[in-house]
Amino acid sequence: MNIISSFLLSFLAGIALIVIAWAGALTNLQGLFGVVLPYIAITTFVAGVVYRVLNWAQSPVPFRIPTTCGQEKSFPWIKANCIENPSSTLGVVIRMAFEVLTFRSLFRGTTVELRGGPKLDYRSTKWLWMAALGFHYSFLMIFFRHFRFFTEPIPALVHLAENMDSFFEVTVPALYISDGLLMACVTYLLIRRVIIPQVRYISLPADYFPLFLILAIGTTGILMRYILKVDVVSIKELAMGLVTFHPAVPKGIGSLFYIHLFLVCVLIIYFPFSKLVHLGGVFLSPTRNLANNNRQVRHVNPWNYPVKVHTYAEYEDDFREKMIEAGLPVEKELSDEKE
């Protein structure tokens, strides 16, 4: 698929979703969009992710194949890198923590340019790392802040997050840093896909679509909070109804909210069946979550099976005469063979 069709297709899919939600809100299908769909989405998400993880876990890890990124454990007088090349479970846990929480491997990022000569020029690039980190953490923050709709009384931690997030206190209501950061990072990731030729070449509709979807979710969310101001009290009523399993649809929530909610539902339904499920997969990655201790601790392959080998006896049968002539020791003499 080329860039135009991939990009357009995903964009149009995003627009279509917005239209569907809008139409739903206008045609009084609030019950479907506000109650039924969120339940379906959550169920699909949980079942889907559990299925995916179990499905991966079902396949064994026959060999211990960590990618070692530092000095191995050797002599006591050689300093081992116990995190990038862990030899213990603790090391693995720390390595995984760095990987999951700080995107350690992405941090190594370099770009290479071929200059005249030919000369290769490497430069450290942290843009992708920064955007990825900014995107994931602002997403997490926004996700967490939304608990104020699902909890009564609102936990202090959520309040704290809100206060930290609106630290700068610009605009009314106060601008959340995470809102701006999320939109900026997603926009960067999208532009990057289109601008950088290598990344454009590998991009599929499945790469643009989640970006458009998240952009749309962010945009509707921002519109609701800062510009069009929806009825937050009613929305909380709806949200509380959902989590307490007494769903009710309060009157007077604008269609914008239903568009936002619908897009979120689509995202979480889409999640387990798409590349977004990397969230769960990273924990299972055999090149990261295993210790490099093969030479000390035996790793067992559950489906290991005997194979046909060429034994020494067969080998000696092939070459006995030549071996004797060359003065190489043999197990059976030529005379034994004739018997």
Partner: peptide, 18 residues
């Protein structure tokens, strides 16, 4: 069915191009 690495690596690439 035999290699988690294979199944996982086919599934979780996000094509960021790192």
């Amino acid at each position: 069915d035999k290699y988690r690495s294979f199944k996982l690596f086919l599934d979780i690439c996000v094509r960021w191009g790192a």
